[in-house]
């Protein structure tokens, strides 16, 4: 098979295989415990028609985006100075080790206890779970920064804002992109937990309701819909932004 054809056919074949395995398992186990693809599609359609799907997905998506923006900006804001200054790194290094090992559930529960069952507590708790990971990645990236360009920026007296925008951040793009990709995957999973524990809308809240009525088809319908949306963000937003930032790498050399 030609490579181009393979790259188009294989994902489709893979998904069809997954559906077949799912259908087989559904037939074997049967009933409400594991509904097949058709009942789940049915549930998806039902939730979409009632509007509940879009309402809850929208609420979750907003929380994901808010927590993501918060976690990325704070993570870069802490990771960059830690990577550049050994003093700051030694001062806050132990904090980082501690927060890396903090269970997500503990952060969520404490945020709700201390700040009440509020939107800010929910989003903050999710962000706190992602920040240490971003800091570790950005710190490693900041350590590998080209000192020659830093000297150039100092000699030509670039302002701190220009240094950040034109000298530091472009070198951190691959690191930040990696942090963003793993961050999105982590954050949307944790958002469902904070919704389940303390919000009255969102996919997590809805899954809790469906759990109480053992509506497995409904749970799978929400899961599939949300995985699809997150994949859309990854391929529709994150990857194009990254490609744009890295466009200088792929330019053909002049003869």
């Amino acid at each position: 098979m030609r490579p181009a054809l393979t790259s188009m056919v294989m994902p489709v074949a893979s998904i069809l295989l997954l559906l077949a395995v799912w259908q087989g398992a559904a037939l074997a186990i049967g009933g409400r415990l594991l509904p097949g693809p058709l009942p789940v599609a049915d549930a998806l359609l039902r939730e979409a028609q009632s509007g509940a799907l879009f309402h809850h997905m929208g609420a979750t998506l907003l929380r994901v985006l808010a927590a993501f923006a918060l976690a990325m900006s704070i993570g870069v804001g802490l990771g960059l100075p830690m990577g550049r200054s050994p003093f700051i790194d030694r001062l806050f290094g132990p904090w980082l080790v501690f927060s890396l090992n903090l269970p997500a559930l503990v952060v969520i529960v404490l945020a709700y206890v201390w700040f009440g069952l509020t939107e800010a507590a929910a989003i903050g708790a999710v962000a706190v779970n992602k920040i240490p990971n971003t800091v570790v990645l950005v710190r490693a990236g900041a350590r590998a920064i080209d000192e020659g360009l830093i000297d150039m920026a100092r000699v030509y007296r670039l302002s701190p804002a220009d240094r950040l925008r034109h000298v530091l951040l472009p070198q951190l793009t691959p690191t930040i992109a990696a942090a963003a990709r793993s961050g999105l995957a982590l954050i949307w999973k944790i958002v469902l937990v904070v919704e389940l524990l303390g919000r009255s809308d969102g996919v997590g809240f809805q899954i809790n309701l469906l759990f109480q009525t053992f509506d497995v088809a409904g749970i799978l319908a929400y899961t599939i819909a949300f995985v699809a949306v997150v994949q859309l963000l990854e391929y529709g937003v994150l990857q194009p932004v990254e490609r744009h930032c890295q466009r200088w790498r792929r330019l053909p050399a002049e003869a």
């Binding site: 150039m152 000699v155 030509y156 472009p170 930032c245 790498r249």
Partner: peptide
């Protein structure tokens, strides 16, 4: 005012030639 030509060109690879000049 100081100009410095380093041993390696030390241009910002992610900025165009014009931007490399404008930024200083």
């Amino acid at each position: 005012r100081l100009g410095y030509v380093f041993q390696e060109p030390r241009l910002l690879p992610w900025r165009s030639v014009r931007q490399n000049l404008a930024l200083v």
